[in-house]
Amino acid sequence: MRITGIRVWQIDLPLAEGSYQWAGGKSVQVFDTTLVALDTDAGLTGWGEVCPLGPVYLPAYAEGVRGGIRELGPHLLGLDPCEHGRLWQAMDGQLKGHPFVKSGLDMAAWDLLGKAADLPVATLLGGIVTPEIPLYRAISQRPAKEMAANLRSHRDAGYRRFQLKVGGDADEDIARIRACRAILEPSDRLVADANTGWLAADAMRVVNAVRDLDLFIEQPCLTYEESLSVRERTTLPFVLDENIDGLEPLLRASRDRAMDMVNIKLSKLGGLTQARLIRELCARLGLLMIVEDSWGGDVTTAAIAHAAASTPSRNLFAATDFNGYVTRSFADGAPRRDGGIMRLPPGPGLGVTPRLAELGEPVFTID
């Protein structure tokens, strides 16, 4: 099987709650996602999707995805998409870094491998070991009472794991955390995610003020060293996200005992191939994991589901149903939330089929 063409669509995904806000006053109202199709001489098409959380979260942006695919695409024509090692050699040989560009192409290659083998991607990633995938809900940064009310509504909808967007004023963040933890049951799980927004001094004020509560602290500061300094002075369990963008940072953090949980974002790492490597190492190291992406729609959510379903239950803290946050669906077969659980779509590959009649012509084609 050989890649004969690449098609790319741009899709707007409006947020159901109007806006999504996190540390530093950052916000997004409409997500700009990129849908990628890899066409082959076998008549099969693989699908991938990449959706950065705006240009100010990670070193990624929507136009960069599409520009990078324009650069990489011609070099992938004629390659066998099922040979992931050769595909990655080709991508790395033609474009240094930029994992967010490669993620959708890698995702589509896994979809093709699953279709060629007539197996779900989760089976190819190690086997379906967690068929009922626990979900978490991210609570956008707002005043404490509003966040608590938002959390309560999502708890009523079935979620039992939550991520609060903090990383603002320390006193306000303390109030946010306490207001939200107060309405949860003991079995519910809460993560306070600062998204690098605190200085170390502010982070210490917060963790000291909430040390009596049952919660995780996620990525308090911009640099690894700052976050490690907070970790070393608190007994609360710790999550790293933005600082873990590859194998070497993970190994360093493991040596330093810098975290208890890792947030694995597919596009941050370059797609399912690299995420699988990080996931397997995290499992061997006894770490908890959140499996997700920076954002996305139906195809990204399907890829998350396959990565999460093949993650050992004891290590999987939660995954994310990003297509449940937005008002637009564009693919048939996409996984949906059932209470606080997500399940794999049926069928081989990722199990989703974009409705191209609704999407119109691609923004560009490489053949």
Rank of each mutant, 00 (worst) to 15 (best):
A209V: 01
R189T: 07
V206I: 11
V207H: 06
D214E: 15
A209M: 11
A201D: 15
D202S: 14
P186M: 14
D212P: 01
D188E: 02
N208R: 12
V207C: 05
N208G: 09
W198M: 02
V206N: 06
A192K: 11
A201C: 06
I183F: 09
R211V: 11
N208T: 11
W198N: 06
G197D: 01
L215K: 00
P186Q: 03
A194H: 04
A203K: 04
D188I: 04
A209D: 11
V210W: 14
R205G: 07
P186Y: 03
N195T: 03
D202F: 09
V207E: 12
L199C: 06
A200E: 13
A200D: 03
T196K: 15
A201G: 10
V191A: 09
L215F: 07
N208Y: 04
R211N: 09
L215H: 04
L215W: 07
L199F: 12
A192G: 10
T196F: 12
A200W: 09
L215Q: 02
A194N: 06
P186H: 02
W198E: 02
A192Y: 08
M204K: 14
G197V: 00
A209T: 08
R189I: 00
S187C: 07
A209C: 03
L199D: 10
R205H: 07
L213S: 03
V191D: 04
E185F: 01
L199P: 00
A200S: 07
A192R: 15
S187N: 08
L213C: 08
D188R: 10
R211D: 15
R205W: 15
W198I: 00
V206D: 12
R211F: 12
L199M: 13
N208Q: 14
S187F: 11
D214F: 03
L190P: 06
V191F: 02
A201W: 14
D193V: 10
D193P: 05
A200Q: 02
V206A: 01
L199Y: 13
P186V: 03
M204R: 11
L199H: 13
L199I: 07
A209K: 09
N195L: 03
R205K: 14
I183G: 07
A203P: 01
D193S: 09
A194Q: 08
V210N: 06
D188V: 04
R189F: 00
R211S: 10
M204H: 08
N208S: 12
L184N: 05
S187K: 07
A209Y: 11
D202E: 15
R189P: 04
N195Q: 01
L213Y: 05
V210L: 15
W198C: 03
A200L: 04
T196M: 13
L215M: 13
D202G: 05
G197E: 00
V191I: 14
D193M: 04
D214Q: 14
A192D: 10
N195D: 05
N208M: 14
D188S: 07
N195F: 05
D188K: 08
A194E: 06
P186I: 07
A209L: 12
T196Q: 15
E185A: 02
